[in-house]
């Protein structure tokens, strides 16, 4: 029985002059066999590569690791959170309103998306976790002194202490010049002690929630310090080291990210405060270009100008010389 479909489709050329593929001479070809062979080949290759090279797994940095490897960085970060000078405190949406963040020309996308993950860096990353510490009377007194001070006074103490730490040799709290820092040195020292005991992660991620699945606070705190970035840079993972394409050790990374990470290496992006939004916008534009290649004059003709296809279909062209 004839269906109404086959004859209508059989020999119709497309608008660009490409004939229907069903109008050509054929030969036997076993698609299912091809797939099964491909599956076996890929499986064997996968098992071979996995057995030969394994996979990377560098342990996550714990707060205790951070506190024992870079105690001065932990103290400086705690003081910075209280002063409101850390990256998270000045980030803007979605955490707070301290900045507008990135923009694409008139499109202030970061600002428009709003504060959906509200975060008070001083309160949520330092003071609240420390509030649960009960066996450190110096810390308890310091926290009480902080709470009873006016906001201006708090900021003054914390900013002065942050600046003094930055001037001290190696940022060592023991080498800080004398000054009026209020309870801030005691709070920062208590924070370091708490991190060293290993209790900080729990206090950050699961306060009020038995199941701590969300690591937003602990990751923001870790990224506010210098230690995580130092570790990453030592492994060539920094943003200006093409880090997006790289993996720890000698393992393969994500080479397909080469173009995205490339823009971060060159001006104007490498020197722009708005690089994140600009690079993202540019990549979306280029990606749209890739999607729309069939419709872009010039771009869609490149395969015609550089005739790799003469090689791919050389058998066909040999048997069908140009008319």
């Amino acid at each position: 029985m004839m269906t109404s479909i086959a004859p209508r489709r059989a020999t119709r050329a497309a608008r660009d002059g490409t004939p229907d593929s069903h109008g050509f001479a054929t030969r036997p070809y076993d698609l299912v066999k091809e797939f099964v062979v491909a599956l076996i080949v890929v499986t064997l290759l996968t098992v071979g590569l996995a057995a030969a090279f394994s996979s990377p797994d560098e342990k996550a940095v714990t707060m205790r690791d951070w506190a024992s490897a870079a105690p001065n960085d932990v103290v400086a970060t705690a003081a910075g959170e209280l002063a409101g000078t850390t990256k998270s405190a000045g980030f803007g949406p979605p955490y707070n309103t301290a900045a507008n963040g990135g923009s694409l020309g008139p499109l202030k996308l970061q600002k428009w998306a709003g504060v959906t993950i509200p975060l008070d860096s001083a309160q949520d990353l330092v003071l609240t976790p420390l509030a649960g510490v009960t066996d450190n009377s110096k810390l308890t007194d310091a926290l009480a002194a902080w709470q009873s001070a006016a906001a201006d006074q708090q900021t003054q103490w914390a900013t002065d202490y942050s600046d003094a730490l930055a001037k001290a040799p190696d940022g060592d709290p023991a080498g800080v010049a004398t000054g009026d820092y209020g309870p801030v040195p005691a709070i920062a020292a208590g924070f370091l002690t708490f991190a060293q005991t290993g209790g900080l992660e729990g206090a950050l991620t699961s306060s009020g929630n038995f199941y701590g699945g969300d690591q937003t606070k602990s990751l923001l705190l870790l990224a506010d310090g210098a230690y995580l970035e130092d570790q990453a840079r030592a492994r060539n993972l920094g943003g200006d080291q093409w880090g997006m394409t790289n993996e720890t050790g000698n393992y393969p990374g994500q080479p397909w990210m080469w173009l995205y990470t490339f823009w971060y290496q060159v001006p104007p992006f490498s020197t722009s405060d708005n690089a994140d939004a600009l690079v993202w916008g540019l990549m979306m534009l280029l990606t749209l270009g890739l999607v729309l290649v069939p419709f872009i004059p010039g771009l869609r003709s490149i395969p015609r100008w550089i005739p790799v296809h003469r090689l791919i279909w050389r058998d066909y062209y040999r048997e069908h010389p140009r008319r």
Partner: peptide
């Protein structure tokens, strides 16, 4: 976050 995606797609979670 620079383009607002982070507001609902939280990579830190």
């Amino acid at each position: 976050n620079s383009v607002g995606i982070g507001a609902f797609f939280n990579v830190l979670n």
